[in-house]
Nucleic acid binder design. Structure first.
Lengths: 344, 344
DNA sequence: TTGAAAGCGGTACCAG
DNA sequence: CTGGTACCGCTTTCAA
């Protein structure tokens, strides 16, 4: 057997070439199989201590890092949980939830990956996600239909969990009850004796998925009560708020549901600057129960939203991955409750 | 040639098995090579129109989605940009920047992936990222040293860009000048005639990477001026702020730099509730130039931070990926400037 | 205890 | 114009 001089025997490794397990094997003087056994602590097979050491040293010296794609290709499955990142600005409430979820999934040994889809919609997006062959997909918001779910399932996703406004065939849905948010606010304002209620509609694109059901919830709460709803389009800018405030008295409203606490702060400030008394003249209710609501004067009444715990969702995902069908398309509804402070 | 009855000829496809390009080929009655050519619009090869149609139909019928791992394994490289997601709560400023960056990279045909590392630190984290063989890595914050950079580079990353407080050997660094944020605030308060300056230190874990350099910046600005700094540890809770406010006059401070606008709002509210005059008795300066600062009364002075445009950073990444070395370890410093309003 | 070899799913070269 | 085939890097039987 002739030794081909692929590389000079000097210790300088091939420059700018990514080391593979074969390189490690060569350097350690063993086979690739042995390298795999050692680095994965294979329990089914016993490798002598000197060999283990040589392999580890070789791996260390070369700076070897296994290739995840090759591994999961061979394994036929991965432990990746894919979460398309919403391309709308998300609030602090939601990002805390995401953080918690990621942490909990990490503890269950999943690799959580947020995927920036940029503008892909519906089935095209689903196809792009499916290319990564994730074990599970967690989709926030609307935009994924039954077809998309099927694409994901057919390409190996064991769990598809949707955090959205409505049930989707084939997926486990956690209903985010934005309708209920508006409903709570409406009921509350009604109980406080208000009858002409404004509802802020954010003009920022991407928020309509949330704002429309919230509006609908208010509408529904007021049905057959003699109270009326007025839509108030509002961009998140001081000037826009000032314009609304300037014509406030002509609107003749005695209450406003401001979509969330941040828009509530924006509008409340503009109203106060124009001398509108809160809550005497106009009651204000926000949503999300952020810290800033407690810091306003008067303190802001708000709709507290009970997101599922990231921990709980992580366990749901894990259950479904391990045994799809064991959890029966559980679509839970999430709680909302009014927090009455001083602004209403 | 005998036709083996692998499947009954009924249209029901193999259940619960992920279709591969081989399945598509079989169904279309062509070879895998042809399938690949058709689905990738290979320009070097001309495939007859009828064949193309058959392949597309077969792919459609099976719900075929290519396997990204297999593809990039074969190709030897990917167009993935990996961005470890910071496990500290990020503000709206930063998340807007991230969004913009993801969008811009998407336009350049990169697949942006945010990776939740959960608790992995330094080299271990770098190794976990390297397993995915990304074309580029964008690391926010500190925590990645030269060794980690080398691990990434050795495993094929063409670009490593760090958004952090200090230069790291081997990586392209964009210095986020938190030191400068504090410095701007200090200089401003000094110019307004303040001499005894408090600096809020958030107690939330993970924020020390930002708060320490900001504090240092204030310290440095006051050096040899006879002015003095007092550290004010503060958790993001009303009670904590109230406790500080209660002993405020005993602290004898005439100004405070509140880390950012949110902490500024928290503290300012507590001070006002205790009757401390702002800015007469105590000047308050925040940072980040958030909308909420403009909504406070008095309006909040703040340090505006000039983040790089996501677009610009995306182009930097792209340049480095296409020709590493063409961009000389560019470490740019980001601008800060004071926005003087009413609270100081 | 270790090594040889067969694939996982795609791509791209080379023949036909 | 299309089919055969050799890889990419890794795991995992099966033999030695």
């Amino acid at each position: 057997m002739v030794q081909l001089p692929e590389q000079p025997v000097t210790s300088s490794p091939a420059p700018s070439a990514v080391p593979t397990s074969a390189d490690v094997a060569r350097l350690a003087g063993v086979s690739r199989a042995t390298v795999s056994y050692v680095l994965n602590n294979a329990r089914a097979v016993r490798i002598s201590e000197p060999t283990r050491r040589r392999v580890h040293e070789a791996a260390e010296e070369l700076g070897y890092v296994p290739h995840a794609a090759a591994r999961s290709l061979r394994a036929g499955h991965s432990r990746m949980v894919l979460m398309p990142s919403p391309n709308v600005p998300v609030g602090p409430l939601y990002s805390r939830f995401i953080n918690e979820l990621q942490w909990a999934l990490g503890r269950l040994d999943y690799t959580v990956v947020q995927y920036a889809g940029m503008g892909l919609h519906g089935d095209a997006a689903a196809r792009a996600w499916a290319e990564l062959r994730p074990a599970a997909v967690i989709v926030p918001g609307a935009g994924l239909g039954p077809r998309g779910v099927q694409i994901l399932k057919r390409s190996g996703a064991r769990a598809v969990v949707i955090l959205g406004p409505e049930r989707v065939e084939g997926a486990h849905t956690l209903l985010l009850d934005h309708y209920g948010v508006g409903h709570s606010a409406g009921v509350h304002l009604l109980a406080r004796g208000r009858r002409r209620i404004g509802v802020v509609i954010p003009q920022e694109p991407g928020l309509e998925y949330f704002s429309k059901p919230r509006l609908e919830g208010v509408r529904c709460a007021l049905e057959d009560t003699g109270a009326a709803v007025t839509e108030l389009p509002l961009a998140y800018e001081e000037e826009a708020a000032a314009r609304i405030a300037a014509r406030w008295r002509s609107l003749g409203l005695d209450a406003v549901f401001a979509y969330n606490d941040e828009y509530a702060m924006l509008l409340m400030r503009a109203l106060q600057d124009d001398g509108v008394g809160i809550p005497e003249e106009t009651a204000v209710v926000g949503a999300d129960d952020l810290m800033l609501g407690r810091l306003l004067r008067p303190r802001l009444s708000t709709v507290h939203i009970e997101l599922p715990s990231g921990h709980g969702l992580a366990e749901l995902v894990d259950h479904v991955v391990r045994d799809p069908g064991s959890v029966p398309e559980a679509h839970k509804v999430l709680g909302t409750r009014i927090v009455h402070r001083e602004s209403s």
